[in-house]
Design a binder for these strands. Structure first.
Length: 839
RNA sequence: GGGCGUUUAGCUCAGUUGGUUAGAGCAUCUGCCUUACAAGCAGAGGGUCUGCGGUUCGAGUCCGUAAACGCCCACCA
């Protein structure tokens, strides 16, 4: 039999295993008649390297899928990647520009070719990283969002929603990214506090020498002002309603209108209305039949409506206009403020609200379906932890129409064709002369279909029939609005069921100081570097078992190192077992108490692990396994097993328990468990497809468990006593009764120290339940020891009086469970006895 | 302006339906190279569980309230 290397070497252990698993197709979902268990991977963007967040997210999924696979489920984990429209396009454009090529000078076809080769490059790198992480993905089912099948699903959804009146095209005020030059959805706008100012401007009232004072943070938009609004309840300004003001610099007359939007409390109570550059003003304008004027172009520069400011960047124009207002005496004052400004999630430039013709999804009916469905526990998406359901529901309650068209090249082309003012929406081009819409769809439009489009939908494939709906979706809470919500409403609408039964939400990875990992802070950690130093097994176990669901994780390298130590411990324990299994043969076994003890602990561990695994409580799985392996198996059983290594029963139990340990650990640390498993005298072809341990009640021996627990407690107490009194190698023990002390004698190496009687000035009782001895220090009692003893007596007295008080409390005795009262009485008795011995 | 989360040992975090002396890892201290492991073994110290009030025989846990920090949402000119 092969032995394990002397030291745990993660690089050696992890080398080549993934390739072997893949070659043998262990990860492929089989067609066998087993119950399915499905996960679709959140497809990473083909824009760069995977970060620690991906490692965390995918490790959780791999734990789930490996667990179920070992339990005999037909486990399918669908891999795939996302084309990531705007993000990838930005990267490809940058790459081209860096090479001195203007991406806009290329034809769409040429550019797309470039983008696909970029995708191939990053797909390759992502595959390598998945391999390093050990993810048991079924590559036969791999998908890419721009695949023909998925594109068909996208078109189908678009066409159907259009025909149902749930997709429409129209001119609306949308969020515009002037750098990427595309429309954005509300979710793609992130609000950041920036330093700005309130510019207080004089708007002279026509036909009088009075003026209204207007405060704005965006003076450059005044060129497009349509009105000034005051609140209908604001008595200060009622007399002006119906009159006009003369727009400074522009010289255009605009009406003073009455609208609730004007806040009496805020500023001067007068607000300028710029329909085409502010979402609120847009609404006000519609109410008052105003006609908007666009003064900023899609390039973020002032346009031809902006007088001589035309061509100036919007921020330069702001400075210029403020200067001009000041010069002409219109600027009353400038008040510095910090206010929140919407920025593009991708390009980080301030978004510009713009009037534009775009495609929208009418959300209300779709969102209502989700809200209704979430009321049915048997049909709803169950969030883990459950509080995140509120996030989704709230989004569904307040949602507004989703702008889905993007002025990009990278993505699914909108299946709409135009000819002579007519619009055709369908799966394919209606033919000659029709021109397809230039725009593509929001990336999230296709991602929203991921759980079913990857399984072949809209075709009712066998894959779709067997594996849909999926069992669990694993993602971070930051992705709920973008993705989870949209998958949920699209799934309900098109597949008439939830896309996944459970939605496991994890947090974000932070650095040691609790800051978000980001490129700009330079505090990001490359999981590949961690794997190189500590191995994927250590990284995975650390990531998955370190937090409870939904909470953020502070990455600490020391913890990965301490996980490495844990694996090293397992390695060495396995080495010990294997060393003693060289002559292993199956034979009659005769369980001793200690064997029954470890089998009981083992089965109880299996039971807990099963419970926690089924509840996705991996932190609990981690701690249960850690404690069992380190404390019960290594510290106790192996130590005691050393006394009976020639016993085949011991060998048998060692093998059985070790095998179970490896299997339970396997989902978390696949590489090292496979390595050791292969060396066991009895094993299947791979641990990947081995059967997960089951709880066996017949192997639970409560009597023996209690017996050994007592002995171990007694042994521990002896060590504590000996150590706290600084008793060295010269000591004597006198047993106080006829109990079986054979195990303590061996464990504590008492041979040669046992006497029938002993006389010494220093004697200390070591008593645990039925086990009792007197420990004698062969040296004379020192003052220090005397003090320790005094302290112990004091603590004992305190404890006794506390218990006496509790037991004399009538209410406690009456209301507390009888078992608890009995325990208290026992303890009191025991402490009193011990006190007597000490005195 | 709404909503949520966090607050437990020096640090990072667990703590099930309320019930022994509140746990772990790392760090610290003491003693050990005991042939699986010194990346280890055997011990030890360290917490008025953020404050206040309530329910209860009993509260880290349930209820109310305050504070600090963080996050999400919302049209803040």
């Amino acid at each position: 039999m092969e032995m394990l290397e002397k030291k745990y070497n993660h690089e050696f252990v992890e080398e080549g295993k993934y390739e072997w698993w893949k070659e043998n197709d262990f990860f492929a979902a089989s067609k066998k008649d087993a119950k399915p268990y499905t996960i679709v991977i959140p497809p990473p963007n083909v824009t760069g390297r995977l970060h620690l967040g991906h490692a965390w997210d995918t490790a959780i999924q791999d734990v789930c899928i490996r667990y179920k696979r070992m339990q005999g489920f037909d486990a399918l984990w669908v891999p795939g990647m996302d084309h990531a429209g705007i993000a990838t396009q930005a990267k490809v454009d940058k790459k081209l520009r860096d090479a001195g090529i203007d991406p806009r000078s290329m034809s769409r076809e040429e550019w797309t070719k470039q983008a696909f080769s970029w995708k191939e490059e990053y797909a390759l790198s992502i595959h390598n990283q998945w391999a390093k992480l050990g993810l048991s993905l079924d590559y036969h089912k791999e998908r890419f969002t721009l695949d023909e099948g998925l594109s068909k699903a996208v078109r189908k959804v678009f066409v159907d929603l259009y025909q149902e009146g749930l997709i429409y095209r129209g001119e609306r005020l949308i969020n515009w990214d002037p750098l990427a030059r595309t429309a954005l959805s509300n979710e793609e706008v992130i609000y950041k506090d920036v330093e700005g100012a309130f510019y207080h401007i004089k708007y002279p009232i026509v036909g009088s020498d009075e003026y209204l004072e207007i405060a704005t943070t965006r003076p450059e938009t005044m060129l497009g002002d349509n009105a000034v609004a005051v609140n209908p309840l604001d008595s200060r300004y009622q007399k002006y309603v119906g009159k006009s003001v003369l727009l400074p610099l522009v010289g255009r007359e605009i009406p003073i209108i009455s609208d609730e939007h004007a806040d009496i409390e805020k500023g001067t109570g007068c607000v300028k209305i710029t329909m085409n550059h502010d979402p609120n003003d847009y609404e006000v304008g519609l109410r008052h039949n105003l006609k908007g004027i666009t003064v900023i172009g899609f390039d973020g520069k002032m346009n031809e409506n902006a007088l001589h400011y035309c061509g100036l960047d919007r921020f330069l124009a702001r400075e210029k206009i403020v200067q001009d207002l000041k010069n002409e005496g219109y600027l009353l004052r400038v008040e510095k403020i910090v206010h929140s400004v919407g920025h593009s999630e991708r390009t980080l430039v301030p978004v510009e609200p713009m009037i534009s013709k775009q495609w929208f999804v009418k959300m209300r009916p779709l969102a209502d379906k989700v809200l209704a469905n979430q009321k049915d526990a048997s049909k709803k998406v169950h969030f883990l932890p459950s509080r995140f359901e509120k996030i989704m529901n709230h989004w569904m309650e307040i949602t507004y129409d989703w702008c889905i068209s993007r002025q990009l090249w990278w993505g699914h082309r909108i299946p709409a064709w135009y000819k002579d003012g007519e619009t055709f929406v369908g799966m394919d081009s209606p033919g000659e002369g029709w021109v397809q819409d230039e725009d593509v769809l929001d990336t999230w439009f296709s991602s929203a279909l991921w759980p079913f489009s990857t399984l072949g939908w809209p075709d009712i494939t066998s894959l779709y029939q067997k594996y849909y709906p999926t069992d669990v979706l694993v993602t971070g809470y930051d992705i709920i609005p973008f993705w989870v919500n949209r998958m949920t409403f699209q799934a309900l609408h098109f597949t008439h069921q939830r896309p996944f039964k459970y939605c496991y939400i994890h947090g974000l990875i932070r650095d040691k100081e609790g800051r978000k990992m980001s490129k700009s802070l330079g505090n990001g950690v490359d999981p590949m570097d961690v794997i190189k130093e500590y191995g994927a097994d250590a990284l995975r176990y650390y990531l998955v078992t370190s937090t409870s669901p939904g909470t953020d994780l502070r990455y600490e390298e020391e913890k990965v190192r301490s996980t490495w130590n844990f694996i090293n411990k397992i390695w060495n324990a396995s080495r010990f077992v294997l060393m003693n299994l060289e002559d292993y043969q199956e034979s009659e076994i005769c369980l001793k108490d200690i064997d029954k003890w470890i089998l009981t602990k083992y089965n109880k561990t299996v039971k807990s692990v099963l419970k926690y695994m089924d509840r996705y409580e991996f932190q609990n799985v981690g701690s249960v396994l850690y404690d069992f392996i380190w404390e019960d198996f290594c510290d106790q059983y192996i130590e005691v097993a050393k006394f009976s290594l020639d016993d085949f029963t011991t060998k048998n139990v060692l093998l059985k328990v070790l095998t179970g340990i490896l299997k339970m650990l396997h989902p978390f640390m696949p590489f090292v468990t496979e390595e050791i498993y292969q060396k066991l005298p009895i094993h299947e072809k791979t641990i990947v497809l081995s059967m997960y341990p089951i709880y066996d009640e017949k192997e639970v021996y409560l009597k023996e468990e209690a017996l050994l627990d007592d002995i171990f407690s007694f042994v521990r107490l002896f060590r504590t006593t000996k150590s706290s009194y600084n008793i060295g190698k010269e000591f004597a023990v006198v047993f106080q009764n006829e109990e079986d002390y054979s195990l303590p004698i061996k464990m504590l190496k008492l041979e040669g120290h046992i006497f029938d009687t002993f006389s010494s000035s220093a004697s200390y009782p070591v008593t645990y339940k039925n086990y009792s001895l007197l420990l004698y220090d062969s040296h004379t009692k020192t003052k220090e020891e005397e003090e320790i003893k005094e302290k112990e007596i004091l603590l004992l007295k305190q404890s006794i009086s506390k218990r006496e008080a509790l037991l004399s409390n009538e209410n406690f005795c009456k209301k507390a469970p009888a078992k608890l009262v009995l325990e208290e009485q026992e303890k009191l008795k025991f402490e009193k006895q011990k006190l007597e011995e000490l005195l």
